[in-house]
């Protein structure tokens, strides 16, 4: 037991230190602050508004556990008809799968190439002026915020149906993704080598190509491989709006209730995305 007369400056007994005496008297000093901060009025209103919007949105999205449970037999029907997958159109599916990856690969490579100059103009440490930086960042933001499916619709109008429209959509989407990360990577690298080259009278181009790009290269490659993974997944669905790739094959199979064919396509997509992710992950490990 602790002697209640012990003051704040006294030693705590060993039993107190290990918590053996749960009913010890406080040793004085200031009271600990409350465990939680009481929200201010505006913060409180924001919490209530967010909660209210979530509840309204549940209704807006027709969220229903009953519908979900009632839908399970439909899923079982689909799966029973989908398996075993049909190899009737294996050849067409293979070509469509190749086209899908070609779209992803070409779109990503073109997007990465175009991202580089844009990222240089957008990087705080490299841009020639704030106006140019603002312009470059706006283009990148536009490419990033408009979804790839919308870009595909626009390019279908521009160049017609087919894989070229999808490839262009992937290219723009890649610019939005890569240019931003490239710019950030260049801003974050060690400024020392750049300062050394500036000190020896190098031009801006020399500094960028001799010091900035080599230092940021691992990050560029890492980001580009992520972009390729992302593009492979995107290229699958662009076919739904006629922009080439395996998506259109999937849509036709589903519309015709050919679920066994659809299963083949879905499994092919799964294998393609998995393969790209594995190879990309292996390359990243080797480079980093």
């Amino acid at each position: 037991m602790t002697n209640p007369s012990i003051g704040p400056s006294s030693q705590v007994r060993e039993t107190d230190a290990i918590g053996a005496d749960a009913h010890v008297q406080p040793r004085g000093g200031r009271a600990a602050p409350g465990r939680f901060e009481r929200p201010g009025p505006f913060e409180f209103i924001a919490y209530v508004a967010a909660l209210a919007f979530f509840i309204v949105s549940l209704s807006g999205t027709e969220w229903s556990f009953i519908a979900f449970i009632e839908g399970i037999p439909n899923l079982v029907t689909f799966l029973s008809e989908a398996f075993p997958p049909s190899l009737k159109r294996a050849e067409q599916v293979s070509w469509a799968l190749l086209e899908t990856f070609q779209m992803a690969f070409v779109g990503t490579v073109m997007g990465v190439i175009l991202s580089l100059p844009l990222a240089i103009l957008a990087a705080r440490t490299l841009t020639p002026s704030r106006w140019i930086q603002g312009g470059a960042r706006s283009i990148i933001a536009l490419a990033r915020t408009v979804p790839d499916l919308v870009w595909a619709l626009i390019f279908v109008i521009m160049v017609g149906l087919g894989p070229f429209a999808g490839t262009l959509a992937i290219m723009v989407d890649t610019i939005g993704f890569c240019a931003r990360f490239f710019a950030e990577a260049m801003e974050e690298i060690d400024q020392g080598p750049q300062e050394a080259l500036t000190a020896l009278g190098a031009r801006k181009s020399g500094t960028v190509f001799s010091a900035v790009l080599p230092a940021a290269m691992p990050s560029f490659i890492n980001t580009s491989l992520f972009a390729l993974e992302k593009s492979t997944r995107s290229s699958v669905i662009l076919g739904l709006v006629g922009a080439g790739g395996i998506g259109i094959e999937l849509k036709v199979s589903m519309d015709m209730f050919e679920y066994a064919e659809a299963a083949t396509i879905i499994l092919s997509i799964f294998l393609l995305v998995l393969l790209v992710e594995r190879v990309s992950s292996h390359l990243r490990r080797k480079i980093m």
Binding site: D190, G192, P193, E195, A196, L197, A199, L200, G201, A202, R203, G206, S210, A211, P214, A215, M217, P218
Partner: peptide, 26 residues
Amino acid sequence: AGFIFQRHNLVPRFSALSNVVHGAQA
């Protein structure tokens, strides 16, 4: 004017030869 920094400020992923070649940018 040559300038030697406290930290060498070399380009890390490049060879010694490439870093010295950079001096020719003067």
